[in-house]
């Protein structure tokens, strides 16, 4: 079976800056994969290339075996959904109207809105728990509600593959968990292939089948959470000294950053020192 997404000898960059160099990466169908790495390592860039939002400098991205360049943007949109990091929240639009826009790739001038579309929108809204707020203006929602509404739009698109660029940014911890649980549920119930970018390593480990660490233009580590989140990898990828211990509840790796030794003095003590010096 073809991988859902396959980057072959992929080079990506902006203007003359190369961000990822000759990268090979296959995303197995039906899995949750999270791209991690330091700021600027190319996580979002790779996700954009997977979603044909960025044309490769060299190499190919295949979607279910077919090169993206051989598919029309609309054909891609029927098989792959992208939730960018910062979509614009449209003016004076209800949650339902927003979610309805996910049906766009399945519609045309000759095949406009159908009852089937309405069913899919309703299903997407109930799966994400926004059915109760269907008539609220999206501009009045809390961050957590808004993110659920965006995910509902992506679900209404009914694609086998979903790309999420930092879906938990701007959310408090409880709502981050809420979104990631939703992602797992979508994966379990719909069998969707999910590729996302996350910053919180412990949450990434808890909710992903596979982690891919990007560093220095390529893949530094790739595999299950325990294989990837080692102190050695963290030191190279992030320049971070950390212990990795089992999460007492889930058994997944928990990253505990170490303080540089000797530990920094508390602020009050430092203030005293300063006065002494003066």
């Amino acid at each position: 079976m073809n991988p859902a997404l396959h980057a072959e000898d992929l080079t990506l960059g902006y203007d003359r800056t190369v961000v990822l160099d000759h990268l090979d990466l296959a995303i197995e169908s039906g899995t949750v994969t999270t791209l991690i790495g330091a700021n600027g390592c190319g996580k979002s860039t790779l996700l954009k290339a997977f979603g044909r939002l960025l044309a490769p400098t060299a190499g190919t991205v295949r979607l279910d075996g077919t090169p993206l360049s051989a598919l029309s943007t609309r054909e891609i949109a029927r098989r792959l959904a992208v939730l960018p990091q910062r979509p614009l929240t449209p003016a004076a639009t209800s949650v339902r109207d927003l979610v309805m826009r996910g049906r766009h790739p399945h519609q045309s001038l000759l095949r406009p809105w159908t009852p089937g579309d309405a069913d899919k929108v309703a299903a997407a809204m109930s799966a994400t728990g926004v059915a109760d707020i269907a008539h609220r203006d999206v501009n009045e929602l809390s961050g957590g509600q808004l993110q659920r509404a965006w995910i509902a739009l992506v679900l209404a698109q009914e694609t086998s593959t979903i790309l999420l660029d930092e879906p938990t940014t701007f959310l408090d911890l409880a709502h981050q968990l809420d979104v990631l649980r939703l992602v797992r549920t979508i994966n379990a119930e719909r069998g969707s292939t999910i590729v996302m970018v996350l910053h919180d390593l412990s949450l990434a480990a808890r909710f992903s089948d596979r982690l891919v660490v990007l560093h220095d233009g390529g893949v530094l580590a790739d595999g299950g959470p325990w294989d990837v989140l080692t102190p050695g990898v963290l030191r190279v990828a992030f320049g971070l000294d950390a212990d990795v211990i089992p999460d007492p509840r889930t058994g997944t790796p928990l990253v505990v950053p170490l303080e540089p030794s000797p530990p920094a003095a508390p602020a009050e003590a430092r203030a005293d020192e300063l006065q002494t010096v003066a």
Binding site: L53, I76, A77, P87, L88
Partner: peptide
């Protein structure tokens, strides 16, 4: 319809097949 998609930002619009 395109205007509705563009209102979500150009990346989202492309993602929707625009």
């Amino acid at each position: 319809r395109s205007l509705n998609n563009l209102a979500l930002g150009s990346e989202m619009a492309r993602g929707l097949g625009e």
